[in-house]
Design a binder for these strands. Structure first.
Lengths: 198, 198
DNA sequence: TCAAAGATGTCACTCGGTGTCAAGAGTGCG
DNA sequence: CGCACTCTTGACACCGAGTGACATCTTTGA
């Protein structure tokens, strides 16, 4: 499982990206997203605006970056599920990864606060939904091959994947609005169970 | 059903908005969304940029304006369904309005072209998804009262409404990518039938 | 007819984002 | 070590989407 060692340039680049996101999220939570300008960020990080945009293509990417690889991971996880398993059950298992993330790493106060900011901000929320729909496309591709519904004129695979993600989102928003009281996995089970009994 | 006669100012305002959207869509289809600047639009309409922004709050609103009232209409339609009807069947019936729209008014070449532009353009697509999620919220509210699942900690209603809209979207994209070959209603039936048999 | 309310244009400005170019820092190699 | 090559950075000018302020028309209604 040893990855190729990253070249030093790439490592420093990632480190800077990391610091920058950290800094940005803190500022966003403190002052608000719209109220924090790129110039503020760049100044706080001690770099020029131009340099900032060499690390992030847009202000939104600061917030959405964490979802970058999730789609591919989910698709891979789906591919790794046993062959005979019903698609709905497979999707539920695959979402376990997201549940874990929410239950463990996402417990920090600022993380939760940032998540709420995204939901409340029209543009950010739109961007968030766009990311989710991109994930869906990747998972959909895998779902098509698994179910054998390869005909692009067949809307069923897209419907099922979309429904599953709707459950994921429903569980997520519920989890956020209830201040993380119930375990995320339970909410997900409730949501997905309401669509199709497992 | 006679509405109060609108004041003349409001009527001219709507007329201008209508002409502006028409003009804009034509230009977007012809030159592309990003390639058409607000200055272009304003010039083509014979008004200043500032005046344009008094009719539309943003460039996106030119494209998304048509979805403004749809959510409320859907919620109203849902409220008008017979009391005992299962929620999934009610939602299918309510979506009939959208199906009608697609089958009748949305057949113009430019309308279809514009719809594809939206799907292809990241920002527009994100904005589109945001509109859909706002519609969902309205329909969700009505769904909660109908099903009696009023507890905000209960994700089931959100899951079902989300799933239904996923079917709607799946049918929509399929309908678009297949060049409108199958009737929209059939696609919707297929999609929703794959989630829950009616 | 006249005053209030509304619509429009102009101008200056903010903010996100990009192209260009020159200067600086890091790396590899003889 | 020194040299070339590449990557990174800052500075600057620029674009497009929006917004605020103010002055000027036009419309409306009494």
């Amino acid at each position: 499982m040893q990855r190729d060692p990253l070249p030093v340039r790439e490592r420093t680049r990632r480190a800077v990206r990391g610091e920058l996101t950290q800094l940005a999220v803190d500022l966003f939570v403190e002052k608000g997203y719209d109220e924090t300008t790129i110039d503020d960020l760049a100044a706080a990080a001690g770099m020029s605006k131009r340099t900032f945009f060499r690390y992030f293509a847009s202000k939104e990417e600061l917030v959405m970056g964490k979802y970058e690889v999730l789609g591919e991971q989910l698709a891979e996880d789906l591919a790794a599920r046993p062959a005979g398993e019903p698609i709905w059950a497979s999707l539920r298992q695959v979402f376990g990864r997201v549940a874990e993330y929410f239950e463990s790493e996402a417990r920090g106060a600022t993380t939760i606060a940032m998540e709420k900011i995204v939901r409340d901000h029209p543009t950010l929320n739109a961007s968030y939904l766009d990311r989710v729909s991109r994930m869906q496309e990747l998972v959909l591709k895998e779902t098509r091959t698994r179910t054998g519904w390869l005909d692009p004129a067949d809307p069923r695979a897209a419907a099922i994947v979309g429904a599953a993600f709707s459950c994921l989102i429903a569980a997520g928003t519920t989890w956020l609005t209830t201040n993380q009281a119930p375990p995320f996995g339970d909410l997900l089970d409730q949501a997905m169970g309401a669509i199709q009994p497992t």
